[in-house]
Design a protein around this nucleic acid. Structure first.
Lengths: 177, 177
DNA sequence: TGGGGCATGTAAGTAGTTACATGATTGT
DNA sequence: ACAATCATGTAACTACTTACATGCCCCA
């Protein structure tokens, strides 16, 4: 996708306050990963790049004998983040194996299509459960809470759509018999 | 994402009948790209790999002086496709810049959050319009039509969600004044 | 005669994942 | 003593995009 990708995940995470790379990764795994994932292999090199660009600064902050590097946003970094937030464009990209399977499902016997939709629903239910677990922790605030609500509601919608499609396919099978 | 990625896009496209690489790309751009994109840079090398694996076979089929290579599924290819369709797992991955922006929107002034949701909605409306254009062509059949309906309905849901959120944010702004 | 679509292809680059290495600390 | 978690990092790999090169055909 266009746009710096992991750059804004890091800048955004640091807009909540100073954090280490490890803490950023944990934040991502509990929140943005549902709409934008990031791995250590991206985060650590990107932190050094952003520091070189003057958008963040680091401070050594060891915990006992365990070293730790804490990063924080510079004014330039905050400006960069806000500039991006104000840009109107916002691409989005989906790789949905379940929908891809459904699209090609007529390569199966007619009564098997049902099973493909069911698998799609089960997958969505699994994600919904993760989102609800995050909701139960009750940590999301303001626009973060809004996004969590979007995630939960959209998954509920998708699950309902699957149930409905399963029912329609079930009726078609009965008619065919 | 796990799973061979473009492999099943090609196998699936060929399950509709023999096609050239160029035709596969056109099919992808009119259909699967909304949930699974593929570029020439993936398609052409993958066609040769799949042929070597014995999953598809090629036939030279020139149009006048213009060369063309038509690929078709072998029985092994059809088995591979069906095997994949029957596997229960189906990962999905989203990279949604609009949601990422909304997640970090509190770095803006409170009255600007509204604008971020509006931008998210506009982007979804743009995609919905593309999906409706495909619907108007009236070519989708069976499970393909089901997937198109999913795409249209889900985008309508997302647009409604945005409108609702915009209204809620509008009310909050009024209260704040 | 020139632009647009048909058709195949590749090189270079970016993005991202996975798996591993290292080592300290905390709790059982 | 050991497992889990904190913490940083990299090498190798896979996936994917972009931009370009080539050349034919059709139509205005």
């Amino acid at each position: 996708m266009r746009a710096g990708g992991v750059e804004y995940v890091i800048l955004g995470a640091l807009s909540f306050g100073p954090r280490s790379g490890y803490e950023i990764k944990r934040l991502v795994d509990k929140s943005t990963r549902f709409f934008w994932a990031a791995s250590y292999g991206q985060i650590y090199p990107e932190l050094r790049r952003l520091e070189q660009e003057g958008l963040i600064e680091s401070e050594s902050d060891p915990q006992g004998g365990r070293r730790r590097i804490r990063y924080s946003l510079t004014p330039a970094g905050r400006d960069r983040l806000r500039g991006w937030l104000r840009e109107p464009g916002a691409g989005y990209e989906v790789r949905d194996e379940g929908l891809l399977k459904l699209f090609f499902a007529r390569a199966l016997e007619p009564d098997e299509v049902h099973e493909v939709v069911r698998a799609l629903r089960v997958e969505r239910e699994r994600v919904l459960e993760q989102l609800r677990a995050i909701e139960r922790m009750g940590v999301a605030r303001e626009s973060g809470a809004l996004v969590l609500e979007y995630g939960i509601s959209s998954h509920e919608w998708m699950i309902d759509w699957c149930r409905d499609a399963e029912e329609r396919l079930g009726r078609r099978e009965e008619v065919a018999r």
